Amino acid sequence: MEKYIDLHIHSKYSDDGEFTPIQLVEQCYKAGIKIMSIADHNSVKAIDEAKEAAAKLNIKYIPGIEIDCTYNGINLHILGYGIDYSHDDFVILEKNILKQELECSKEKVKLTNMLGFDVDQVALDALSDNGVYTGEMFGEVLLNDQRYNENTLLKPYRSGGERGDNPYVNFYWDFYAQGKLCYTEIVYPTLKEVIDLIKGHGGIVVLAHPGNNLKGKFKIFDEMVELGVEGVEAFSNYHSPETVEYFYQVGKKHQILITCGSDYHGKTKPAIELGECHCTIDEHDIESQLKEYKLI
């Protein structure tokens, strides 16, 4: 199926993104993508740059953001599309989370070293533009540190290893995600607060990659719709065919917006290609929905 729409892309304004907004627009153009959205983590900085570049290449651009939040103890990612991104509320959100991430980064260094490493601080700082250290960065530094070439804990993440397809983000998921050994807690807004924020600024609320966040708890999504979630990223690179079909049918049942997104980051997720959304329907049907929701 052609690559036509990708509504979940990350730029360098996400701590784990590789490319500038303009580079991403150019990549979308080369890939044949006609409708795109950069949805950075808790940040709207990419939007103006990307909108201007997309307009020059005749690409329809939807302003977006991906906000971390919690619901019943589960960490979630909520996509906000079509938002009035010029409002100070989004600046306040980013500053609040950045402040916490800077503190957590110091703790991550200690926790990582407790695994038996001596993290190369210079190499870590070279990867970070703002002092925030992500789990992906720790993975990149350790996997490229010759002192640990034979380290057994890192073996699964090397070429040919069982976690070697997306080594950096897999290292994050295995050690720094919620409930893992190097997890550091950030106080994110609640799902209800994020719904109110996005809707309060004219946006549409969509749950990102639900199969990835709601592992084994898919029924919870029905509660989220009652709370105010207006869409679901049924077509996601992370979803199995069964998960795609489940959330596609759930989306149709609730008569909500059904979207597709690759969650493209670049080097932290090298196995993910731009426009790779596991979409099983004609993407022009998604385009029609986007028009109904006045997003394009």
Rank of each mutant, 00 (worst) to 15 (best):
D222N: 07
I204M: 06
G73Q: 04
N113I: 10
H265D: 00
K215I: 14
G64Q: 01
G202V: 12
V194F: 09
A126N: 15
A126K: 15
C260H: 02
T112H: 11
Q121P: 02
S236G: 02
D120S: 08
N144A: 04
I83M: 02
E136N: 10
N42D: 15
A46Q: 00
A54C: 02
D125S: 11
S14N: 06
M1L: 03
A31N: 11
H284E: 14
D145N: 12
S240L: 06
F175G: 08
T184P: 07
V132T: 03
L76C: 04
F117E: 01
T70G: 06
S240A: 08
K60V: 00
I9M: 01
E18M: 04
F19D: 01
G131P: 02
A39K: 02
M224F: 09
V132M: 00
A177G: 08
L143R: 12
D196Q: 07
D196I: 05
N144G: 01
E18I: 07
I67T: 12
K99L: 14
F117V: 02
S37K: 04
L124D: 01
G160Q: 14
G261N: 01
L102K: 15
G202P: 11
K199A: 05
Q100H: 10
T259Q: 11
A126H: 04
S105E: 00
I186E: 11
T259M: 08
L274D: 02
E245Y: 06
E245T: 13
C260W: 06
I186M: 05
N166D: 15
L295A: 05
A55C: 06
E230W: 03
C104D: 10
N151Q: 08
N213L: 07
L207M: 09
A123G: 13
K51N: 13
I5R: 03
I47R: 11
G231K: 05
E18A: 15
D68C: 12
M224C: 05
Y157E: 01
C277G: 00
K3H: 09
D84R: 05
V250N: 11
I281D: 07
V109S: 01
D174N: 13
S14Q: 09
T70M: 14
E103F: 13
S43V: 00
